[in-house]
Simulated scan of single mutants.
Amino acid sequence: MERVIDLGESGQDFVSDPHTVYARLRELGPVHRVRLPTVDQPHETWLVVGYEEARAALADPRLAKDTTKVGFRFLDEELIGKHLLLADPPQHTRLRGLITRAFTMRRVEELRPRIQQITDELLDEMLPRGSADLIDALAYPLPITVICELLGVPEMDRTQFRKLSTEAVAPTSIDAENDAFVALRDYLTELIEDKRSAGPGGDLLSDLIRTTTEDGDRLSARELRGMAFLLLIAGHETTVNLIGNAVLSLLTHPGQLAALRADMSLLDGAVEETLRYEGPVKNATYRYAAEPLEIAGVTIAEGEAVMIGLTAAQRDGARYADPDRFDIRRDTRGHLAFGHGVHYCLGAPLARMEGRIAIGSLLERAPGLALAGPPGAWLPGMLMRGVRSLPVRW
């Protein structure tokens, strides 16, 4: 009988420092049966913590994302609609093909001047104050403004949206999570209907409504809502944490910060090392064994859940020498922060661009940047890795 490791035994220590727990697990082997510390009844899953095993598992077609194959649906599919993270080929191929017709690299690159402008405006507002919570002042408002403008989401109650979004990815209770999904469903339904009746617009959501392949295929109403949900939530939550984690890592590693200030050509390296060292996503969303299989000699039965540890894999010493050292000159090629295989993150180029512009502009305009106190609590749950607040001064 496989021993089950209770990840909740460490309590809050596991939330603030999962790396220590994952290091112990990697010493015991690359795959483990674990009990997750979740807001509902604790449940068990297989957890992959080794780098090579994680990379292979991310691209293994035997590990399905479509939960209907194993007899249930997650809240987002039940209440909102099918999206890329809940689909397998050929359905996934179809959905991704439809969205990439509208969400092109050219479209992302054209956002660069606007991202710089938004960043400059946020810094203009922040810097005269002398100190701020960097999450509230820059890391959150930048990506939420960018993704809302890209999708054509009108100026909304950003405070309320932030609460709903965070609850969806880092739930505090079952009821609050359900309420958040219901509110997001209702909002997106109304938004899409408004855009349909308004006619052609220049935003991504309007384009997705109209996008049709040569053979007449297009997104259904539920698929549109699911894609809008994924783009809106994933399009900002991860980037908030990328910016926050990068600044926190730099400020707690003064030698690396000094090296970057002395040579800003290292900025790309700083962003990539943050993605490896303290990436914004702890674990890939669940996969399910569509058939019996083995990972590193461990037998996974058909229908069992598998969680692939991105945070765990990226501190694997077999892949990255001295993995717990933050080193902006490191060769980070092959990191898994954006996944691997057919589910590789569609928004990776946009996230990288926002991260580089935000961090580069901040360091350029705030030469005395320093921590003004301890960071806020790390986000709960098994999905996102980031702090709720980051007090800084300059």
Rank of each mutant, 00 (worst) to 15 (best):
L257D: 10
A305H: 07
L224R: 05
E278M: 06
V240T: 06
P280T: 01
V281K: 01
L267Y: 11
I192T: 10
G381M: 05
G199N: 09
L260G: 05
P171K: 00
A351F: 00
N283H: 06
G334S: 12
M227A: 13
L111T: 15
V108K: 08
K69S: 07
D66M: 00
R352L: 04
V21Y: 11
L250D: 07
L260A: 05
I357K: 04
L95C: 10
L47I: 12
R101P: 04
E223I: 04
R62K: 01
I243H: 01
A176L: 09
A290D: 02
D136K: 11
I359E: 12
T166K: 05
D268I: 15
G255R: 06
P30V: 12
G381D: 02
L363S: 09
R162T: 04
D120S: 01
P154E: 02
V153F: 03
R225T: 11
Y140H: 05
L184Q: 00
I115V: 10
G226Q: 09
R388V: 12
I243W: 02
L275F: 02
T38M: 11
T172S: 09
I209F: 06
K195T: 15
A284T: 00
V298S: 03
D60N: 13
G303C: 09
T299Q: 15
L224Q: 06
R94D: 07
S10G: 13
A372W: 14
E237H: 01
P391Y: 15
P42K: 10
S131D: 08
D194L: 15
F229H: 08
R365L: 09
F103Y: 13
S197A: 15
G355T: 01
R96T: 06
L275H: 00
A23P: 12
Y22N: 03
R24M: 15
D186C: 02
P171G: 08
G81C: 12
G279R: 03
S173A: 08
A370T: 10
T119V: 06
A348S: 13
R112W: 13
A57T: 02
E109G: 15
D175S: 12
H92D: 06
L151M: 11
D263P: 09
D268E: 13
E149D: 13
G376M: 10
R26S: 08
C148T: 03
D88Y: 04
T119Y: 09
P90G: 01
F74I: 08
R101E: 13
T93P: 02
R330P: 07
G202W: 09
A139W: 03
P89A: 09
I115Y: 10
P154W: 11
I359H: 06
D179R: 07
F338L: 00
A198C: 12
L58V: 03
L184W: 06
A137L: 03
D327W: 09
D194G: 14
L336V: 02
G97V: 06
L111D: 10
E291C: 14
A377Y: 08
E52L: 15
G376N: 09
G368E: 11
